[in-house]
Write a protein that binds this DNA or RNA. Structure first.
Length: 293
DNA sequence: ATGGTAGCTGTGCTA
């Protein structure tokens, strides 16, 4: 089975390129970020015509996440447990604080079960600047996700031991097969950026962000693209500005953390750098993970 | 020389 994550930077602008990719890539499940539209604006029919079921969560022109699958799509969730919201949105949306003091959850996470794998399409908050409220939000968001992910990876209780011999998942000794895929907006290693000195004092490389990212590893997850693509200066994103792609001034910020039950099935990973070329490219490229059946 | 790109029901915000 082939899983892919891709920040498309507007699904409506990128629809032809996304459908073209699906047509030639043998993708079974595509986790999409930054659809930049509401649910009623999402091109569901185009995906269905291509043979994919699709679930989308979008509230405005910002963020927006989706999962497209040709191996089933069940039990859709549009937020993870205790996912923080962002307080600034209360002010901007002119909501009555007496009626709703809880910051609204943004459209940054969607989960669905596809072909037996619990897939999450995740768009981690950017952070904007060290000390910005959005930076605090980013760290809280990652911590809440890690807490939830840890429970998903735990071995299941005795009552959930499968009774049917053909269900081999229990034999792997771990919980659900979970794929946490998306744009993590964290540069985990100094060698994941063209020149780390340019990021001094900025987001994406700060020790708290890197610790929040590495915490998934401490929770038992494996980052599959690192496992199969250890080469330094291998990027998944290039800014639109200043000829970043021709100059290969990129960042590695799109990843797939796999629970133990999923990691044991991983057979390879690819970063489709070709998708950054030509007119109308997203600033991110598809990141591909392959699993044995 | 403080620019530059792209997308969004946008005259600014987000990345």
């Amino acid at each position: 089975m082939r899983l892919v994550t891709w920040n498309v930077n507007s699904i409506r602008t990128r629809l032809d390129r996304v459908l073209g990719f699906l047509d030639r890539s043998q993708t079974d499940v595509l986790a999409i970020q930054e659809t930049k539209c509401r649910d009623d604006q999402f091109p569901t029919q185009a995906f269905e015509a291509a043979g994919y079921q699709v679930a989308h969560f979008g509230l405005s022109q910002w963020n927006g996440v989706a999962i497209a699958s040709r191996v089933g799509l069940d039990d859709v969730a549009t937020q993870f447990p205790d996912q923080p919201g962002f307080a600034k949105a209360i002010i901007e949306d002119d909501m009555d604080p007496l009626l709703d003091v809880v910051p609204p959850v943004e459209a940054r996470a969607i989960g669905a079960t596809c072909g037996g794998v619990r897939v999450w399409s995740l768009y981690v908050p950017h952070g904007r600047a060290l000390g910005d409220p959005h930076y605090t939000y980013k760290l809280a968001w990652l911590e809440a996700l890690r807490t939830a992910a840890q429970t998903w990876a735990e071995p299941r209780g005795p009552r959930e031991v499968p009774q049917r011999s053909e269900d081999t998942s229990w034999g792997r000794g771990a919980g659900d097969a979970v794929a946490l895929m998306g744009d993590w907006n964290v540069i985990p290693l100094d060698t994941d950026v063209y020149n780390v000195a340019d990021f001094a004092g900025k987001t994406h490389v700060s020790p708290p962000e890197r610790a929040a990212f590495d915490a998934f590893g401490k929770a038992g997850y494996t980052e599959l693209t690192r496992q199969f693509i250890p080469e330094e200066h291998t990027y998944t994103y290039w800014d639109y500005q200043q000829l970043s792609f021709p100059r290969n001034k990129g960042l590695r910020i799109d990843f797939c953390w796999a629970s133990p039950a999923l990691a044991s099935r991983a057979s390879g990973a690819l970063i489709d750098r070709e998708e950054r070329k030509g007119k109308g490219a997203s600033d991110h490229v598809p990141v591909i993970v392959d699993l044995t059946d």
